[in-house]
């Protein structure tokens, strides 16, 4: 018996029920892809540009995005200002790229059929794919926040943070609030990821899935801005995304945050189930 044969003898009587290997492989795939690394750089560049612009112009009042006015008093506001801007399009675009790769990308390469014949059950595949999208969402938002905080602290220092209610928070407590903001924004992007996962099961073209999810996001923002459609606003995924500002009140104002989280959870569950319904019975001919 050759070495190869001895090594290939079955070492297990039965399969594991749970293993993190596929998820780790998935995250490695996302993190290792050059395009994603470039995307992350773009996400990270924005807070740097914002901070430098504010520093150079040295204005303390003006019509810039929320929080920009406060940037000079505390560096952490750079993170908040950057998130306000990037939640609009950049972060949704980033998750749209990852979601496009998730199922449509694998179908396009043909690797989907090989994963399924390993076998990876379709339900397990969607669980792992969605977990990796959630990870990607958290990662993207964290990078924006951390880079923003770093450049902000470097340029503007770590003075006490003046909340939107007017009171002041020490730096430690302010950092804690920033962590909550990151988690809240990640939840919104991850919910959008579920929509993207569903779209990804509909096509074999990853770029089509990416574009479709981007259009979905932009359309949501547009509808959210039309006052005549206010009955629709509570149902839109983006409606409460910028409510993270409420976490910077003293004490935090939870109503909109909780409403936003429940909308996120609703989108995540419904669209994950739709993705499952689509993929579970689908003939894989790619």
């Amino acid at each position: 018996m050759s070495v190869a044969e001895r090594l290939s003898r079955p070492t297990r009587k039965r399969g594991r029920v749970v293993s993190t290997r596929l998820l780790r492989s998935e995250i490695g795939l996302i993190a290792g892809r050059r395009r994603n690394q470039m995307g992350l750089l773009v996400l990270a560049a924005l807070p740097i540009v914002l901070a430098i612009a504010v520093k150079v112009s040295n204005r303390t009042a003006g019509g810039g995005p929320d929080f920009l006015d406060s940037v000079t008093s505390n560096g952490l506001f750079v993170s908040l200002a950057a998130l306000t801007v990037e939640m609009g399009l950049f972060l949704p675009l980033a998750i749209a790229m990852l979601a496009g790769d998730a199922v449509a990308g694998e179908a396009n390469l043909g690797t989907l059929r090989y994963l399924l014949t390993v076998p990876v059950r379709r339900t397990r595949l969607l669980v792992v794919k969605y977990a990796s999208l959630c990870f990607g969402a958290l990662w993207g938002v964290t990078v924006v926040a951390v880079v923003g905080a770093a450049i902000g602290i470097a340029l503007f220092g770590t003075g006490p943070l003046t909340t939107l209610s007017g009171s002041q928070l020490p730096f430690g407590a302010a950092s804690g609030r920033l962590v909550l903001v990151v988690l809240y924004c990640s939840a919104g992007i991850a919910a959008l990821g579920a929509v993207g996962l569903f779209i990804s099961t509909l096509t074999e073209q990853p770029i089509a899935a990416t574009i479709a999810l981007t259009i979905f996001t932009i359309l949501s923002w547009i509808l959210d801005g039309v006052p005549q459609l206010d009955w629709l606003h509570p149902w839109l995924i983006v409606d409460q995304w910028l409510a993270f500002a409420d976490l910077l009140r003293d004490p935090p104002f939870w109503d909109n945050i909780l409403r936003g989280l429940s909308v996120d959870a609703g989108y995540a569950v419904v669209f994950w189930l739709l993705a499952w319904a689509r993929l579970a019975g689908k003939d894989i001919t790619s």
Partner: peptide
């Protein structure tokens, strides 16, 4: 390695 990672039976 990715294919092997996907296999719940492999060691």
């Amino acid at each position: 390695a990715r294919l092997d990672a996907a296999d719940l039976w492999s060691d």
